[in-house]
Amino acid sequence: MSGTLAKESMAAKPVIQSTKASRRVSRRKLFDRCFYRLCQFTVLLALMSLVTLIGHILYEGISWLKIDFFLNFTSRFAEQAGIKAAIFGSVWVLFLTSAFAVPLGVSAAIFLEEYAPKKKWVEWVQINIGNLAGMPSIVYGLVGLAVFVRYFNFERSLLAGSLTLGLLILPIIIISSQEAIKAVPLSLREAAYALGARKWQVVFGQVLPASLPGILTGVILSISRAIGETAPLIVIGALSFVAFTPVSIWDEFTVLPIQIYNWASKPQEEFHHLAAAAIIVLLVLLFFMNFIAIYLRQKYQRYKL
């Protein structure tokens, strides 16, 4: 009884209210619907362009993905060309770049978050790390050319390339690691300190392990950025025609993106197919790395407080 009464009185309300108000409500509803459709449309657009792109590349390149493609060096003849040198180069670059950038970046993040005094110069450093993260990658190439290739005389070696890429991803690693460390709740630190732990024990025994998934995610994403970079390596003069696998950090090298760039800029149709095939390999590599990042995040999610 009372239920129907309440319903009636509620239903009666709009009648008493001005029609202006009800028009406002319906206009808001309309806006809501439009906005929803707009969002749907943009997502669809993004997805479609991605699918078209991948579809096109698969169509162009998949039939060129043969065993020989992985075992051969590049060649003037498309049928005999492969990405052996580029794959070796990319793997070398992956490990060397990580070896430089990860320890440095993570330590810098630990310092900035845990040990740096709250001083003006620290703030200044922090701001500039942010600026560096937004710098176009070609600028890093120029720095690499001037500093590593010329000044240190590393020439067009793996070392010079990896250092340049390391420089490029350093600010990203620092910032993402800082974010991960910041996300560790105060309560965890307090618990550790209350047990009579020293600062370094708290930092290395609790804060770092707790932020490790976040740090790793950032690191993997930055490295996958480094793997896909072309411009800075071209600037420092990495070769595109390499018919050997590097055996030391002093060797010249090529990497997948450069190989792709080189093939794609050739006039012959066959080389475009080769480029597409190499893009597939690069994409798989990047997807794989992103997958690891996601996996790590999921796995440690339950530790979030």
């Binding site: 309560s187 965890l188 307090e190 618990a191 707790a210």
Partner: peptide
């Protein structure tokens, strides 16, 4: 502490 705060 007020809120249980075990280590992860």
């Amino acid at each position: 502490f007020q809120k249980p705060n075990p280590f992860p």
